[in-house]
Amino acid sequence: MRARSAFSIQKDVIFAIFVREMNAKFSSYTFGNVWLVLEPLLMIVMFIVLFGLRGRGEFGYVAPPIFVFAAFLPFKILWQLTMRQNMGAVSGARGLMGFRQVRLFDVFMAHSFLQGCLFLVVGLLMGLALYWFGFDATPRDPLLLLAWCAVLWLFASSVGILACVASQFAREIEKVISMIQMPLLFISAVFFPMTMVPEPYRTILAWNPLVHAMELIREAWFPVYVSPVADGFYLFLWTIGAMALAMSSYRLSWQRILAQ
């Protein structure tokens, strides 16, 4: 029998952990998973109440339900949930470390892939629901949209790994990161386009890389929207920097983390 390659073994390990996490998520917390669809839906209803279903609440280019759907869903699943799952990966991986084929990095990958798949499934369900109610949520450039969503997903995965490593040395980091998630929701251009923000606040908010992610997603989604601040290179720099720091810190600290 020919020996299996290390890549083949790692691929099967990640898939096994992925299936394990998916079964645990969908078999034990039914209402928690329904909430993945209900939360964006409630946000859409709130915007309908505040801005009206059509007409003056269209921000000049898109109806409020589609506006919320296009920004809140990537922020919630690709950023918040992906980062949070990786940040807390160690506590759920203790039982798996007894298998010599399993590495902590495999757990990070499985969690990240799970959130990416959830984003695609929930996004498809929400898009069909909007279409059923008469809203066309079809993206202008689907491939470009998926590309920017993938960059945001990589950024969130890397920040989650980095936060996981750092929190093993200072547990307060988890609390701090959890506390800033709500302010980030309101300063990351999730509920407003940057065209509505006057200077000098626009320049100040543009230091936040999540603003660029939201604006680039809007540009790829909406036919007539042009962001005044979106910079893909800036977002790439943050993503590459976060990935480099995450991989370096993981490489230096993974044995110490598991030994705790």
Rank of each mutant, 00 (worst) to 15 (best):
residue 177 I to N: 06
residue 17 I to E: 11
residue 95 G to F: 13
residue 122 V to A: 00
residue 81 L to T: 10
residue 61 Y to N: 03
residue 175 K to N: 14
residue 99 F to S: 12
residue 219 E to C: 05
residue 234 Y to W: 08
residue 155 F to L: 14
residue 173 I to G: 00
residue 254 W to I: 13
residue 27 S to Y: 05
residue 172 E to Q: 13
residue 175 K to F: 12
residue 167 S to I: 07
residue 83 M to G: 01
residue 139 P to W: 00
residue 23 N to Y: 11
residue 160 G to E: 04
residue 28 S to E: 03
residue 185 L to D: 00
residue 39 E to Y: 11
residue 123 G to L: 07
residue 36 L to Q: 12
residue 10 Q to S: 15
residue 202 R to A: 09
residue 143 L to V: 14
residue 64 P to N: 01
residue 99 F to T: 12
residue 187 I to Q: 03
residue 104 L to Y: 04
residue 249 S to D: 05
residue 193 P to R: 08
residue 33 N to I: 09
residue 129 A to K: 01
residue 174 E to Y: 13
residue 241 G to Y: 03
residue 253 S to Y: 11
residue 99 F to I: 12
residue 258 L to Y: 05
residue 115 Q to Y: 05
residue 111 H to F: 15
residue 212 H to F: 08
residue 232 G to R: 08
residue 40 P to C: 11
residue 25 K to T: 15
residue 150 A to V: 09
residue 128 L to M: 04
residue 93 A to M: 02
residue 217 I to Q: 14
residue 68 V to I: 15
residue 70 A to Y: 02
residue 150 A to Q: 11
residue 232 G to I: 03
residue 109 M to Q: 13
residue 37 V to N: 07
residue 96 L to A: 10
residue 216 L to F: 08
residue 141 D to F: 13
residue 109 M to E: 10
residue 133 F to A: 04
residue 213 A to H: 07
residue 72 F to G: 06
residue 93 A to Y: 08
residue 154 L to H: 06
residue 159 V to Y: 05
residue 5 S to L: 13
residue 48 I to W: 08
residue 187 I to L: 07
residue 162 L to S: 14
residue 80 Q to L: 04
residue 153 W to C: 02
residue 15 F to Q: 07
residue 157 S to V: 01
residue 88 G to L: 10
residue 61 Y to I: 03
residue 125 L to E: 01
residue 254 W to V: 06
residue 227 S to A: 10
residue 128 L to W: 02
residue 228 P to W: 12
residue 19 V to R: 09
residue 247 M to G: 09
residue 226 V to T: 07
residue 153 W to H: 15
residue 189 A to T: 09
residue 170 A to Y: 13
residue 218 R to S: 10
residue 197 V to T: 02
residue 238 W to K: 07
residue 82 T to I: 08
residue 207 W to F: 15
residue 240 I to K: 03
residue 136 D to Y: 09
residue 19 V to G: 02
residue 142 P to F: 06
residue 187 I to C: 05
residue 222 F to Y: 06
residue 68 V to R: 03
